[in-house]
Simulated assay, not measured.
Amino acid sequence: MIDVETDATRSIRTVTLARPEARNALTVEGLADLETAIDDAEASVIYLQGRGPAFCAGADLAAVSDLDGDRERAGEFARLGQRVARTIEESPAVVVAGIDGPARGGGLELALACDVRVGTPDSTYGEPGVTFGLFGAWGGTVRLPRVLGEGDALEFALSGRTVDAEEALRMGLISRLEEEPRTVAESIAANATDAMAVLKRRIRDDRERATQERLEAQAFGDLVAAHADDIDSVLE
């Protein structure tokens, strides 16, 4: 479930991941709704947040389990997540992630697609899929080394470890640490819309991503097929 609210000045659209009972994990329907919420925005700034004690747990593991180890369906699920992340990245609006609580797997990858990531002191970050035979496949293998550098990206992804807000700031996973992340979105929204749009296009220019994402989705499909039983055991 995705909640959308635009402020009276129409300068900030707030998009809230609203499945707190599931730590805002995303199903196929949730990803589609998120894509629409981003794509339909006319505001100059989009503020993405989670409801409740988590930002986003990533893909709903029950939805991954329902793929029944089918490579093609798993690849389609990965490509949907990649498309949503690209919609965030390519939006003409500046997208600010306000991260409070856990950002895991696909949830972290969606945050990586945002232009600015602001964490609270209670935020935590991790790519735990490797512990049960998967990895986040929503563009993370493309964006993580771009954000962290290859060495830190490899250590972080291969270890499956969780980092706290201070370490995330040091690593560059987040760009700011604030008690109230929305204040950063509000300060950005005061700037010239056209200048921000040009800056975003130029800084975001990346022409080799499509091939990398295609291979990422294929690899995800292979792993879902190989680890279907392991995925089910995590849900038990």
Results as ranks from 00 to 15, higher is better:
188 I>H: 06
143 R>N: 06
10 R>K: 14
142 V>Y: 10
82 Q>E: 11
103 A>R: 02
200 K>F: 05
146 R>V: 10
110 L>Y: 00
28 V>R: 15
32 A>N: 14
24 N>W: 01
178 E>Q: 07
141 T>F: 10
86 R>Q: 15
69 G>L: 01
80 L>A: 02
5 E>Y: 11
86 R>E: 12
175 S>G: 15
174 I>Y: 05
89 E>N: 12
84 V>I: 04
83 R>W: 08
140 G>I: 03
102 P>I: 02
236 E>H: 05
27 T>G: 13
230 D>N: 04
211 T>L: 10
57 A>H: 06
3 D>W: 11
86 R>D: 12
46 I>M: 06
79 R>H: 12
48 L>R: 00
110 L>K: 02
194 D>W: 09
139 G>E: 04
91 S>D: 12
33 D>V: 12
100 D>I: 08
190 A>W: 10
11 S>Q: 14
221 G>I: 07
2 I>N: 00
124 T>F: 04
148 L>S: 00
36 T>L: 14
218 Q>S: 15
207 R>K: 08
80 L>E: 04
107 G>K: 01
160 G>A: 05
174 I>K: 04
187 S>C: 05
184 V>A: 08
100 D>A: 15
84 V>F: 07
21 E>K: 07
61 L>D: 14
191 N>I: 10
99 I>P: 08
20 P>S: 11
181 P>M: 03
46 I>R: 03
55 F>Y: 11
101 G>Y: 01
24 N>E: 01
23 R>S: 12
151 G>C: 12
23 R>Q: 14
25 A>N: 08
143 R>Q: 10
232 D>R: 05
131 T>D: 06
4 V>A: 13
218 Q>M: 13
122 D>V: 06
231 I>W: 06
72 E>K: 10
144 L>D: 13
148 L>A: 00
48 L>Y: 00
134 L>I: 00
85 A>S: 15
94 V>K: 06
119 G>N: 02
124 T>S: 12
157 A>R: 06
14 T>D: 09
81 G>Y: 01
84 V>D: 07
202 R>G: 11
146 R>K: 14
69 G>M: 02
91 S>Y: 08
173 L>I: 05
57 A>T: 01
176 R>Y: 13
79 R>C: 13
96 V>M: 04
222 D>Y: 09
187 S>V: 06
74 A>P: 12
97 A>V: 00
69 G>C: 01
191 N>F: 15
43 A>E: 08
85 A>T: 09
3 D>T: 11
132 F>T: 01
57 A>Y: 08
169 L>D: 07
191 N>T: 14
125 Y>K: 02
209 R>Y: 15
215 L>Q: 14
163 V>H: 03
220 F>Q: 07
37 A>W: 02
203 I>G: 09
181 P>Q: 04
176 R>M: 14
64 V>N: 02
196 M>D: 13
50 G>F: 03
172 G>R: 09
218 Q>T: 14
6 T>F: 10
106 G>A: 11
16 T>R: 15
99 I>W: 11
144 L>F: 10
192 A>M: 10
50 G>I: 02
23 R>H: 13
6 T>M: 09
73 R>I: 08
198 V>E: 15
113 A>P: 03
134 L>C: 01
153 A>F: 10
113 A>F: 01
224 V>R: 03
127 E>W: 13
13 R>G: 11
47 Y>E: 03
97 A>G: 02
51 R>Q: 15
122 D>S: 14
